[in-house]
Design a protein around this nucleic acid. Structure first.
Length: 423
DNA sequence: TCTGGGGTCCTAGGACCC
DNA sequence: TCTGGGGTCCTAGGACCC
């Protein structure tokens, strides 16, 4: 049976989320900024047409923002996350197998799925259903492999004549599309490898599909070979419905201003460590090691630069904020150096594992293995009803180093006070 | 003044073992 | 003392994704 994968990808996802509850934003140019209002991470079609580039720092386009009355938003992840889960829930009702690939896209496995009409009709059904249930515009690409489905989706976005759905199951159609698509558009071919491929004379996707696999293995990696095979219709990347457990978890931020004093930086680091620990517990995991990094700014060349990183092992894997804070602050004391202007820091929890599957220390007492006094779960429960109700001594949530969010929209769907009103 | 945050996988090279 | 081959494990760095 020929495999059929669909890739459903939301159009300008963050921008579309902002528009859902604010109709005045339709048809006007909008951009959404990264954390700290740093750079552009989403653009409406109108903003793209104005030539606003992806990932450009906001300060560089100040003039364009004023000139074209661009509407600017800070990223609002509680809102985007909630809209995302609604889109995914709708998709789960439309296909037998769904792999949530990112916040705004999902692969469906439609192999052998009994469709009433054509694949293209089903793509339109998906679009209409998500439009009706959530109000989110999406594009759908259909093909025998994930890599080709990605390509089909790209075409559905790029060419209006496709009505946002492209069925790329026909080999002749695959060839035609691959011949006019630059190689850098392929899923898995990034900027570096696209440049390298071009130097080898491979400029289109079709040329990559026809590349000699042995030569691809030599000059790139096994991933490039798999990508070539996928472009030729052979499934090398299967649908993954239940992604593997996380292996590491990070909480890091740039500060809204440089930190030069010991205490505020320590508070920030404690905050990151506590947040990371909370996420660790919410995933039902424990961690074996903790890594801390602190560093100065990268974009001020005349400033004294310092970047420090250190790792420590937990005596036994755990997820207790008290333990994690203690180790993190010890690491901080080993890294801290006076006289620098710190711009960013982060805490990474690694060697994550299932608490029931922990490799025991020969000499550890069972009671010391897992945080079992119940304190953490009580704190988590309380904090679930509103962030930052309870915190530990070293933390100072929402201090002035906290990220800049000058253009934040309301949390329409996740905070009672922000519910939109209908008059 | 101002350039995100959070992940995964692959490879090369070194240490160490037999 | 020198040399060879084969293997594992770990780490750092790089590339990719969104």
């Amino acid at each position: 049976m020929t495999p059929v994968f669909a890739l459903v990808d939301c159009n300008n996802f963050y921008v579309s989320c902002e528009r859902l509850f604010n109709p005045s934003l339709k048809h006007v140019p909008i951009i959404v900024l990264s954390n700290n209002d740093g750079c552009v991470i989403a653009r409406s079609q109108e903003a793209k047409s104005l030539g606003i580039e992806m990932a450009i720092p906001a300060f560089k386009i100040k003039q364009q923002i004023e000139q074209h009355s661009l509407r600017v938003f800070s990223s609002n992840y509680p809102l985007y996350g909630d809209i995302s889960s609604r889109v995914m829930a709708t998709l789960e009702s439309l296909a037998p197998q769904v792999e949530i690939y990112s916040i705004d896209e999902a692969f469906l496995n439609l192999t052998g799925f009994n469709l009433l009409g054509s694949l293209e009709d089903y793509g339109q059904t998906i679009r209409q259903t998500i439009g009706q249930h959530v109000g989110m515009p999406v594009c759908v690409g259909l093909a025998p492999t994930k890599t080709l489905a990605k390509l089909a989706n790209h075409a559905a976005k790029k060419y209006p004549a496709t009505a946002s759905v492209v069925d790329l199951t026909d080999p002749e159609r695959q060839r035609k599309l691959m011949a006019i698509t630059p190689v850098g558009e392929v899923w898995g071919v990034g900027r570096k490898n696209a440049e390298k491929l071009k130097r080898l004379g491979i400029k289109t996707v079709l040329q990559l599909a026809q590349m000699d696999k042995a030569s691809a293995r030599r000059q790139f990696s096994i991933l490039m070979v798999k990508t070539i095979e996928e472009l030729n219709g052979q499934v090398r990347f299967a649908l993954d419905e239940s992604p593997a457990a996380k292996k590491q978890l990070m909480c890091s931020r740039s500060f809204s201003k440089r930190l030069t004093e010991y205490v505020p930086l320590r508070e920030a680091i404690c905050e990151f460590a506590a947040q990371a620990a909370e996420r660790l517990r919410s995933g039902g995991q424990v961690c074996g090691t903790i890594n801390l990094f602190i560093r100065t700014g990268a974009c001020e060349p005349d400033e004294k630069a310092y970047s420090g990183s250190a790792t420590a092992k937990l005596p036994t894997p755990g997820s207790d904020t008290r333990t994690i804070l203690k180790i993190t602050t010890d690491l901080f004391d080993s890294l801290w150096k006076e006289g620098y202007r710190y711009a960013k820091a982060g805490v990474m929890l690694a060697e994550l594992c299932d608490p029931n599957n922990v490799q025991l220390d020969l000499f550890s007492q069972p009671s010391a293995r897992i945080d079992n006094d119940g304190l953490m779960s009580v704190i988590d429960k309380i904090n679930q009803t509103g962030r930052g109700k309870i915190w530990f001594g070293g933390q100072r949530p929402k201090r002035d180093w906290f990220m800049k969010q000058a253009h934040l929209s309301p949390a329409y769907t996740t905070r009672w006070d922000d519910l939109p009103l209908v008059n």
